[in-house]
């Protein structure tokens, strides 16, 4: 009886979380549209091709991609009820996610140091709003993963923890999907000097 209730609860929670992710997609869609419209309006500032450090962006992308893989491996370990393996993969996920976040903060700091903050032009406002919102999601995901690691360490695989881990993996994969589009349509199109 209890197990049946857990399955039903798990199904409902995951479906609800999926709905949240879909609405978040629309939020990002609006930011993408704003960015696409404003990207040329640099108010006399340098173009994106001059600003972006492409090898760094590739490193960021690979870091996030690896962390999304390890988030998946973490789920597999959880299905096999392997607590140590779970914690190791979760730790690796946090490490790669944190590396991604650090590189992003570094990029932002460099842009601001060059006088290209969100205040300098409409194009930069659009850029910081879009990439910054994604970064904020990553930060929330990192906090979530840390809490998850502590809770699983203390209480083991309870039904609630298993649900949380699945939702976290879903969230993390979703952020990687959003990043593909930022990588392609912000960085790659920007570096090729636009349309």
């Amino acid at each position: 009886m209890n197990k049946l209730k857990d399955t039903a609860l798990s199904y409902r929670t995951e479906l609800g979380f999926w709905m949240y992710l879909m609405t978040d997609c629309i939020l990002f869609g609006c930011l993408f549209a704003t960015y696409a419209v404003l990207r040329g309006s640099t108010a006399g500032g340098p173009s994106e091709a001059e600003l972006f450090d492409m090898p760094m962006v590739l490193a960021q992308t690979l870091a996030l991609l690896t962390s999304t893989l390890t988030a998946g491996l973490m789920l597999v370990a959880m299905h096999r009820k392997r607590s140590v393996e779970f914690k190791v993969w979760l730790g690796v996920t946090i490490a790669f996610g944190a590396a991604f976040f650090a590189m992003e903060l570094n990029e932002f700091a460099l842009l601001i140091a060059e006088g290209q903050s969100w205040q300098s032009s409409a194009a930069r406002s659009g850029f910081f709003a879009l990439v910054g919102t994604h970064g904020l999601h990553i930060l929330v995901g990192l906090l979530w993963a840390t809490v998850l690691a502590v809770v699983v360490h203390r209480r083991g695989f309870t039904q609630k923890n298993i649900r949380q881990a699945k939702l976290f993996a879903l969230f993390w994969h979703f952020l990687d999907v959003i990043w593909i589009f930022i990588f392609t349509f912000v960085y790659l199109v920007g570096a090729s000097n636009g349309i």
Binding site: M54, L58, T61, L62, L65, L69, G72, I180
Partner: peptide, 16 residues
């Protein structure tokens, strides 16, 4: 997961 990761890396490098 491994197949998905490999394909994603290949596509990323391709577009880069």
């Amino acid at each position: 997961y491994l197949v998905g990761f490999t394909l994603s890396v290949l596509i990323t490098f391709g577009s880069y």
